[in-house]
Amino acid sequence: MTTSPDGPAIGPLLRDRRERAGLSQLELALRADSSARHISFIETGRTAPSREMVLKLAATLDVPVRERNALLVSAGFAPAFPSTPLDDPALAGIRTALERMTAAYEPYPALVLDGRYQVVAANQGLAALLEGVAPHLLEPPLNAMRVTLHPEGLAPRIRNLPEWRGHLLDQMNRQLALQRSAPLRELYEEVAAYPVPGLPDGSDTPPSEPEEARFALPLVIEHQGQTLSFLSTIATFNTPLDVTVSELAVETLLPADPATAKALHRA
């Protein structure tokens, strides 16, 4: 067993996670097959939880895999999940699967993001959409949030920029609520401070949404003289056993109307 004498105690960390999840001690105990008394003793430091209990509570609270390792260390245990670099030979199969997955969506844009919104894989559909973006924003590592919201990126071409920007910032805020990440917090503060360019037509009113997209917020963007409308979907790996893999997300931009589908296939 390892110790972390200088780090935060496991009890307050678990209490913070429980409160952010909006659960009482009794509700957490019922979900984790424990007792409210035992949960209380763990949170106040009167009882040291076992390794199995830390992992069980973390899973019950839907704590991200990286943060589960942090909870284990705070409790005096070694991390349970490795953090393998994506370019490691051990993840060659994952990389191949991601490349095949994004290629299968062509001509629709698809990309793979890590936990900091850096693009680790993308298809030709996305490359076409990025035409006209300032070269300095396309230098590796390419960051999806920066490219989308920067005034020299896609932002001036996004017809519903205020709504889409709000959606992306809310998404980052939800992620920050689940994990303590200084780099992610710095990225959020950077992109949130970008000036918001005016809409392409100079109007303060975004265009009406297509009928097919009214059940979800679409990304409406100008591209090569046409207005394209996309619905964004995000897929993650189920029950990942590696920190790196747990933070990967496959985002696809699917046509929100027949005109967009036709334009992409024609291109």
Rank of each mutant, 00 (worst) to 15 (best):
Leu137Met: 11
Thr47Leu: 14
Ala127Met: 14
Leu253Met: 15
Leu217Asn: 08
Leu71Lys: 03
Ala177Val: 01
Leu55Glu: 09
Ala134Phe: 04
Ser74Glu: 04
Leu26Ala: 14
Pro49Ala: 00
Pro206Thr: 02
Arg17Phe: 03
Glu163Val: 08
Leu217Asp: 06
Thr2Asn: 12
Lys56Val: 06
Arg95Tyr: 01
Gly22Trp: 06
Ala235Thr: 15
Glu99Met: 06
Phe77Pro: 08
Met145Lys: 01
Ile39Asp: 01
Leu72Cys: 04
Ala216Glu: 12
Leu149Val: 10
Ala110Cys: 13
Ile158Gly: 08
Leu55Gln: 10
Glu163Gly: 03
Asp201Lys: 05
Ala92Asp: 13
Met53Thr: 12
Leu184Ala: 13
Val119Glu: 08
Leu219Thr: 06
Tyr117Met: 12
Ser34Trp: 01
Ile221Cys: 04
Gly132Thr: 09
Ala90Lys: 12
Asp33Val: 04
Phe237Ala: 15
Ala193Lys: 08
Ala216Asp: 06
His223Tyr: 13
Met1Lys: 03
Gly153Ser: 09
Val250Cys: 15
Arg159Trp: 13
Val191Gln: 05
Leu154Trp: 02
Arg95Ile: 00
Thr227His: 04
Arg15Val: 04
Leu14Thr: 03
Leu161Gln: 07
Tyr188Glu: 13
Thr96Trp: 01
Val133Cys: 14
Ile158Gln: 05
Val73Phe: 00
Leu142Gly: 02
Gln175Leu: 10
Pro255Cys: 10
Val245Lys: 09
Thr44Phe: 01
Met101Arg: 06
Arg174Thr: 08
Arg46Asn: 11
Glu131Gly: 15
Phe41Thr: 01
Ala127Tyr: 07
Ala235Ile: 08
